[in-house]
Write a protein that binds this DNA or RNA. Structure first.
Lengths: 341, 341
DNA sequence: GTTTAGCACTCAACTCAAAAGAGTGCTAGC
DNA sequence: GCTAGCACTCTTTTGAGTTGAGTGCTAAAC
């Protein structure tokens, strides 16, 4: 069942208003600001209909209406990317004048600017390494019995793991092992390497060193499940929204923001190839704080994803602005990252 | 000018009370709970005296008194480490049953338990690398023209920097460079290396590669000023304290907590060799949020500091508990770290 | 001289009823 | 189908009145 054009217009206007004021919207207000050609009584009738269809809620009989989550979903589905103001563009690009040095640097800058421009809490989640392609792998002797496992992938350099090597391993042998590592392990996705069966691929003469290769594989498996970097910015912004003047709400919100892993999981659901994803309220994403929405966007070059960025805030956040800002930043980063390469 | 014993007792009791209730304390209450041998009128006279000495403040004429920062300072200066309850000890040690794997792991666990047990926001700041001693330094070829600079110090492995090397550098030459690097740069403090003058120490035959050595030095300088890891936990706790039910206060607090660098700077002032440091209010540490105190402790083995941990919370925090918990955790970590080695 | 009982005074906090105001639903007429 | 008009509902605001906690001071007791 589809809504009449007038109902659509009323509903859309109401949501638009509510996003700004956070107050129940009255028939009179809608009339004055959006539909001067109809009387408030007519609009009241429509509102009443929309209410029984589940789009609106009345806090008490003598109050205006507030949108339900269904109404927000309707509203958001109509949204297009709207152009940003010159001020906003300047504000955003001002943060990216310096050369970017690392993915973490990008993430930190993005969250800062995102939170600043949208007045919401921003989140950035780096992709986990599973899909990366190992390009170089090498054991670097540190002391006689220890070596660093150095892994260079297409997107990262991993070097956080030190393993033990036989005390009597000569430089020559190490060289040989390194050659074999490169031969066997590159170029392959980290994912694929998890299931590599050494028994099948190792030469007879290397069987004595099988333990060493096993250790390297173990390191690769660790790398692949390495915690993604997750950063947030602007958690305090939430206190500016009247719906979070209630202490318990605010506290719950802050606690969710602090649980980085849960945050990351909320982003994970997006992997449907969508550039942009909007989740409204707990019905659509159960881990969200009460009364919150999450808007996320992929960042990366072409199909090559580096991670996700997004904002969390009250269900009545300014979706128009958020969507445009995410769109703009996404493109900006794509440009910056491709210049880098 | 020193306080009479009775004044001391009254002042101490008043602060003790205020820490629990966050309400102005009346003469009658002090009498009933702490000084039954004197009448409330007597205590009122003493309170009046303490007020004119700057220890107490009266919100309005018909209210009890609240302690000034001077009173908290007095109170804290009397504090001793008091034993923890068995429950608290169990709660703390329960978090450290698993083997610790890295400094960051320790920090993350510490902040979690610290915030949980004290009901305050906890902070951990890793020491910067300046004082670390370089033990191994090595260039690892990644591609023909690129090499990773690998630095192993007594506390860390740094491997975040890739430099360019001459395309025509042979493996042999690289080996030679590595030998020289080890010869010239180890074992030295990262600090010392900042001022190393290559002209004086490089052999004639290596002058052609001076640029390369310069690049490595540059990397070391970067490493030494590398951002310390700073993590916080339990920011939401602040909302449970009535002094932060005011939105603006809460917001200011959260914003300070998010500015990790500023947080770290507050810890930096502690380098007077003290194990424990208490800063009460903005008078004592201007970067603190309004009405907050900071209690910090060094962690490390013997004189060898690894970083600092601490809590931030309202000036009327439970110093007794905080001090004991920090003391206990400090010792626990020292034990864990020395087992590691 | 110190302590204390007693009392007048102050001021925030609470209660309660009345008034104001915003907004609706419904009806009757255009 | 639309709207003017009005009765009704419910929240919010206001202000007067009351309560109660707590002080400061004085004068008497120790």
């Amino acid at each position: 069942m589809t809504l009449s054009d007038r109902k659509k217009k009323i509903l859309y206007s109401l949501v638009d208003d509510y996003i700004v004021t956070a107050e129940p919207v009255s028939s009179k207000k809608i009339q004055e600001e959006h539909l001067p050609d109809y009387s408030s009584a007519t609009i009241r009738n429509e509102l009443s209909a929309l209410e029984s269809m589940g789009y609106l809620v009345q806090p008490h009989t003598s109050a205006g209406r507030i949108p339900s989550q269904k109404a927000f979903r309707f509203y958001v589905d109509q949204l297009m990317v709207t152009p940003l103001s010159q001020d906003e563009i300047t504000a955003i690009e001002g943060h990216f004048v310096d050369k970017i040095s690392s993915m973490q640097d990008v993430m930190s800058k993005v969250t800062t600017v995102l939170s600043e421009v949208t007045h919401l809490t921003s989140v950035a989640v780096e992709d986990s390494a599973t899909g990366e392609v190992v390009q170089t792998i090498k054991l670097v002797r540190l002391t006689q019995g220890n070596a660093l496992v150095l892994v260079v992938s297409d997107k990262n350099v991993f070097k956080d793991h030190i393993i033990e090597i036989p005390d009597n391993l000569s430089d020559n042998d190490l060289e040989k092992v390194n050659n074999w590592l490169n031969h066997l392990f590159t170029p392959k996705k980290i994912d694929e390497l998890r299931t590599l069966n050494l028994d099948e691929v190792l030469d007879e003469e290397l069987k004595v060193l099988q333990g060493l290769f096993e250790d390297v594989l173990k390191v690769l498996r660790e790398v692949s499940k390495k915690k993604k970097e997750i950063i947030t910015q602007g958690a305090a912004q939430i206190l500016d929204y009247p719906e979070y003047s209630d202490k318990d709400n605010a506290k719950q919100f802050l606690q969710v923001i602090e649980q980085k892993q849960k945050l990351a999981d909320m982003f994970a659901g997006d992997d449907n190839g969508m550039e942009l994803n909007i989740k409204i309220g707990r019905e659509e994403e159960k881990n969200l704080p009460d009364g919150c929405s999450l808007v996320t966007a992929k960042i990366g070059i072409n199909k090559n994803s580096y991670g996700n960025i997004g904002v969390i805030g009250p269900v009545r956040m300014d979706y128009k602005k958020v969507v445009s800002v995410l769109d703009h930043i996404g493109k900006l980063i794509e440009k910056l990252l491709s210049e880098e390469e």
